[in-house]
Write a protein that binds this DNA or RNA. Structure first.
Lengths: 138, 138
DNA sequence: ATAGCACTTGAAGCGCGCTTCAAGTAAAGT
DNA sequence: ACTTTACTTGAAGCGCGCTTCAAGTGCTAT
């Protein structure tokens, strides 16, 4: 039975206390109890927070999060939850693919500029970006 | 010798014309020519734009981009370019790892709620999130 | 000539996700 | 008794990345 204060949660999750209060205000962390008017976070609260961090950091907006979490309160409304989750999964898969592309682009730029530096040092001919440029497919 | 108008570039890159002008204002796309006071984008401009999109969408801020592109004008300043590029590559690699984790979390939630729906339909016992929850390592 | 269209500019405005602020409270330490 | 520490609240403010706006320019079609 873990019970944490707001500053403990803040440190553990790398979120400012103001952010935690903000999330609660939006209705994202319902049912946070208080002792002497100070917040006390239980495991259920922290699990919600885990989800919030995951969804938010994977590109879900606050209002989408509100919608999703409202489906979990009322019912829970399995069909709507699954619809949102599936849609978000697709979105994250797309982001992953894009980010991998960008990562390749960046490593190629690193290789390119390293090659220029090499050439500069050895007096060899300047390399051509065309030889490094990522393919433009899609 | 490709030459595109602002609205053509806008469509091709899925960026509003106002965004293209904004980037230019920030100094991110230097040397855009004008014909009858209308912008004409050449291949060099578009290549810069490609880089901007890549770096921006992989989490680089506008001011970091300004810094990076300033290193490319003056010199170019290979050491500073490489420093920024290497740092950003590390950042993107981290983002990729995190996003993969989030993706796993989300697919597990999908599986969990699908299992609940199944159980609801068949009258089987309700599944337990503990059996789906991603490991909390790190 | 006159209208319409595609652009131009500088300045102001906007939405999101927090953050900061001033003022208050309640328990613990000296 | 008084201070310190750790929170509380509602409201206002902020930074980023654009976007919108009003007013203007110059080419083309009727």
């Amino acid at each position: 039975m873990t019970e944490l204060t707001i500053s403990e949660v803040s440190k553990q999750y790398h979120l400012a206390p103001s952010t935690l209060r903000y999330y609660e205000r939006l209705g994202l962390i319902p049912g946070v109890r208080k002792r002497n008017n100070h917040r006390v976070y239980n495991e259920a609260n922290l699990e919600k927070l885990n989800s919030i961090v995951c969804f938010k950091n994977s590109g879900m907006s606050m209002s989408e999060l509100q919608t999703l979490l409202s489906y979990q309160e009322t019912g829970p409304d399995l069909d709507n939850i699954l619809a949102v989750l599936n849609e978000h999964e697709v979105s994250v898969a797309r982001q992953l693919a894009q980010l991998e592309k960008y990562h390749r682009h960046i490593t190629q730029k690193v290789a390119f500029y390293s090659a220029i530096k090499e050439a500069e040092a050895t007096g060899a001919p300047r390399p051509d970006w065309a030889d490094y440029k990522p393919g433009d497919e899609q």
